[in-house]
Design a protein around this nucleic acid. Sequence first.
DNA 1: ACCGCTGTTCTCCG
DNA 2: TCGGAGAACAGCGG
Length: 266
Amino acid sequence: MRTEAEAGVRTFRDCDLGIFKALKGSLTGIERKGKYLMVRFSNKLGFVGHLGMTGKFLKRAPGEEVKWSRARFILDSGEVIHFQDMRMFGRIDAVPVTELEGRPGVAKLGLDPLADGLSVDRLQAAFHGSNQEIKVALMNQERIAGLGNIHAAEALFRAKIHPERSAATLSPPEWKALVKAIEATIAFALDVEGDGEEIEYVEEGAPNPFLIYGRAGTPCRKCKTIVKSFTQAGRTTHFCPTCQPKERKTDGDQMRKRPRARRYRG
DNA sequence: ACCGCTGTTCTCCG
DNA sequence: TCGGAGAACAGCGG
């Protein structure tokens, strides 16, 4: 195996391109941590990869053109694995394998639901001391690794928790529901969204596969209330005002301070 | 044609 | 420390 790289692209912003080009030999390990991939080669070099928003690994026949191909792994068979990344939010960070675990991003990752297993205790520990709004906390990779904007919203919809609730105000049943919801969301993601090399959920004409994400202005799948969206920590959050009420229905024992008012749209 | 939006993370402010 | 804003990039739809 040998490698090729587009010089100067942001994809390699963290690493010496020379190390990427020196990746050689056979694969000795592929490991996922949160949204990061760690790949090791037999010559003791490796890389940390991240797909960003538009990154993909694609295997293609020799000579086949791939648009937005930022890096290539040329197999002995001649087939090519392309790192395709239109927007270049993705990253390839090639270093000696001894340094992989300490690279930016991977070093500080929090609880990994798939690798570590999820439980109420572990989730609560991950959020310990946090007054962050729950959706923002779910997207914080240093607390729980792997959930992004879509799946944080999906998990909260499944758990019937309003995205602006503070983690500190969740009741025991809500914690339990959130654990189940995260597990279900991940299972759904693995099962339905992607089943092969190309994960395309916004393919032309494909229906939105999500329960709540991207459904602003349309009836909630469960209760027909019009789904709303608003901006939270710079990202669009989708939720159902009926299924995910801001105020807990059960009496207010555990309610602390009220979240700040925000403008809603959609 | 322009504007605002998009699955992420990082840095720079206050 | 923490949170928010903006940046990095390319494309798409209104």
